[in-house]
Amino acid sequence: MAGGDDGTGVPYLVKVEVTPRAGIRDPEGAAVERALAALGHPDARGVHIGKLITLHLRAPDAAAAERRADELCRTLLANPVIEDYRIEVRAAEGSGP
């Protein structure tokens, strides 16, 4: 495992956006899109509902942090059958939690 719980490395803040995979039916997004149209915004299209997951971890550098985040997404945070994910890594303020 690419663990980093020994306290070494640089703290990073990881943000993961999980969204329904392109082409997969998104009934929540469709329902919100209809509601927006009913509110007078028929041009608000392509509505999708996803999740934002944030976490802190330590890694030698940003690329390593991103690799670990990708591993977390593949094993737990997203289900590749129905979801896409996007990872954003940036240096954490201070030393994290």
């Binding site: 997969i24 039916r25 009934p27 929540e28 329902a31 289900n79 059958v81 129905i82």
Partner: peptide, 17 residues
């Protein structure tokens, strides 16, 4: 079983919400 990869596919929110 689907999440474990012991069966294929996934179960999503019902189409009619």
């Amino acid at each position: 079983l689907c999440e474990s990869g012991m069966l294929p596919g996934a179960l999503m929110r019902n189409a009619g919400l």
